[in-house]
Structure formats: C-alpha cells, structure tokens
C-alpha cells in the first residue's frame, strides 16, 4: 500500500504493538489527539490508554519513565514532539539512557526508542527546525537512526523497536507528507547498521541521510546531463555507522560530497570526513566537501536558504570533479 512517511511510522507502531504486548507509546498529545503530526493517530482507540499514554508536558519525565518501564520489561516508544524539545531530557538521554547498561556492568539495560521529528523545510524557525543528531551520535551507548523514505521508515523503526539498545529515531518533518511510496504490509524490517546504496554511480559519492537523500538524488540526476555518474549512499544508521559501505564507495569513486541539514562545524560530516582520511586516504582524488546547514540557528524567513538545496549539492559535485 502507498503511504506517507508519517503513515509509515503509524503502521510500524501498530504492527509492533499488535505483535508485542510489551510495546507502549507515550508522549505529549500522542493518545486521544494522535500526536501533533498524527504519527500515533488511532493507536489509543485500538490499544487503550494504558498502552498509549498522554503524559504531562515534561520531556525529562517522559524519557525517565520510559527508562524505568523498560527495566521492568516493557518496550517504550516515547515521542518527543520536536527534536528541538528533546533538550530538557538531555540529562536523561546522555547520563541515563546511554550509560545505564555500562555503569551497571550490564545489569540494567534500557530498551527504549525515542522518536522525534527534526529538520528544516517546514518554516519552523529556531525552535522547530533543528537537526540535533550530532549530540546523540557523540554519546556512547546510543544508536541513531534516520530514515529517508516511507518504506525505509517502517523497516527501520520496526528494527529499532526490536533492538535492545536505546535508539534515537529522527524523522524528517519535510518528508512526513511530501512523499508517498509503496510500503510492504505486515512485518517489514530494515536492519540497523547497514547503509543503502540509493543510486549506484562511479564518479562521485554523496554520503547523506534523511530528507537530504532526496535532495542529493535530484542533484545526481542533473549531473547526468554533464556526464557525471553520481553514487548516493543513504547512511540510514548514523550510529553504528556502516563503515564498510562508506569506505567501499569512497575507494570506488575517490570523490566525496557529504550532505546534511545539521550545522557544518563538528557535525556528522566532519566525522565521516575524518574516517575517510584514516581509511581511504590513498584513494581520494579531491578534498572531501561538506554541504550542510550553516553554523547559525535556523532562521524563520530564510529557512529554504539555510538547508542544502540541489543547487548547492550540484556546485559541490562540480567543484570536486574540477579539482
């Protein structure tokens, strides 16, 4: 069936709640209202208000209670309304969720998924459009997953719910309703830790994730006209990273463009760039280029200029080809 990305989230939650009694959903407005983006629409009617829980407005308590529930055998999927509002729960995520398995010598291991919409492109400004993935990738003990399409979203969210490590699952708001594609019905899994070759090519590799896959694909198509064959790798799982796929592609093309919406400095692209200089230096034909959001808060009026566009990606591809 054809679904949007937000419907795919709903489908994955519904399937997993049906399959596994331990799965509960909690967050602000997720129950009766079905979530501010309707990701949990209708779930409370099916699974009841004990398993689909409208919580008070307090992110740290939402994440903290999820951790506790998981210690007692439930599998909570918490929704944070926007990634911008996950920061009150930063201590819970960075000090507790990520470190509890470690500090307890493996005795207490929280099995929790935190879902949150992120990214620019919907006119959210400084507090509804951020891309906060680097904070979480930088924290040992967390997995970070970002899907690029509805089918990918269903498969990756299902795997995230079944994974026993804590997962920060970030959903691009820009993709919530803009894309519709065929999504497999019933059980559908996409493994964590495996990147996807979204468009094989031989001249340049674009390494990207989330809504930037679509932007990169557009750029790749335009580059066909210039006889440049672009490969697009959809990273899918930022932590743990599928280093084999990334390095193999880098060795094949020797030219790398990294695209993400998050700010440039100390962003995820910086880490990939460093890894490739460690693991594929001899194969590189040109400096690695990053196309990213700027090192500013996300502006309201000029949000479209803030995010990488196909034009900016194309310019980067031309630069690396000309080097």
């Amino acid at each position: 069936m054809e679904l949007t990305l937000v419907q795919a989230v709903n489908d994955a939650l519904r399937e997993e709640m049906k399959r596994d009694q331990r799965v509960v959903v909690l967050g602000e407005d997720v129950g009766k209202y079905g979530g501010v983006f309707k990701a949990t629409d209708g779930l409370q009617a099916v699974f009841g208000n004990e398993r689909v829980i409208d919580t008070p407005l307090n992110e740290q308590a939402i994440v903290g209670a999820s951790i506790g529930m998981s210690l007692k055998g439930l599998v909570p999927v918490a929704e944070i309304q926007f990634i911008d509002f996950i920061h009150p729960a930063f201590d819970q995520i960075v000090s507790e969720l990520s470190k509890m398995r470690y500090r307890s010598g493996g005795q207490y291991a929280p099995h929790v998924v935190i879902r949150a919409p992120f990214g620019a492109g919907t006119k959210g400004g400084p507090y509804h459009s951020q891309s906060s993935e680097s904070y979480f990738v930088h924290t040992a003990g967390l997995k970070v997953v970002i899907p690029s399409s509805p089918a990918e979203c269903k498969g990756l969210l299902t795997s995230s719910i079944r994974d026993t490590d804590p997962v920060i699952f970030m959903e691009s708001k820009r993709l919530y309703r803009s894309v519709r594609e065929e999504v497999p019905e019933g059980e559908y899994l996409v493994p964590l830790g495996k990147a996807r070759n979204a468009r094989p090519g031989k001249d340049v590799t674009i390494l990207t994730y989330g809504s930037m896959v679509q932007v990169s694909m557009k750029a790749a198509e335009v580059m066909c006209e210039e006889d440049v064959d672009v490969e697009v790798i959809d990273i899918r799982t930022l932590m743990p990273l599928d280093i084999e796929t990334v390095v193999a592609s880098a060795k094949k093309t020797g030219r790398i463009v990294i695209v993400h919406e998050a700010p440039k400095t100390m962003g995820f692209g910086a880490e990939i760039s460093a890894l490739l200089s460690e693991k594929a230096f001899d194969y590189l034909k040109a400096p690695i280029i990053r196309v990213t959001g700027y090192d500013t808060p996300v502006p309201f009026s000029l949000e479209d200029q803030y995010s990488p566009s196909p034009e900016r990606v194309i310019a980067a591809i031309r630069n690396t080809m000309a080097y």
Binding site: G64, G68, M69, Q92, S95, E96, S104
Partner: peptide
C-alpha cells in the same frame, strides 16, 4: 538499581518501574 551521579534523574526511573509493575 545502580545509580548515576546527576541529581534526581533516577526518580522518574522509579516511577517507570512502578508504572510497569502496576500495568502487569
């Protein structure tokens, strides 16, 4: 449950465990 060092972060964990026990 092995504690961390930040203050009161474990209170909501105690709430979550008791909540799950209540559900069960």
């Amino acid at each position: 449950v092995a504690p961390s060092s930040p203050i009161c972060t474990h209170l909501s964990h105690a709430v979550g465990v008791a909540w799950a026990a209540m559900m069960k």
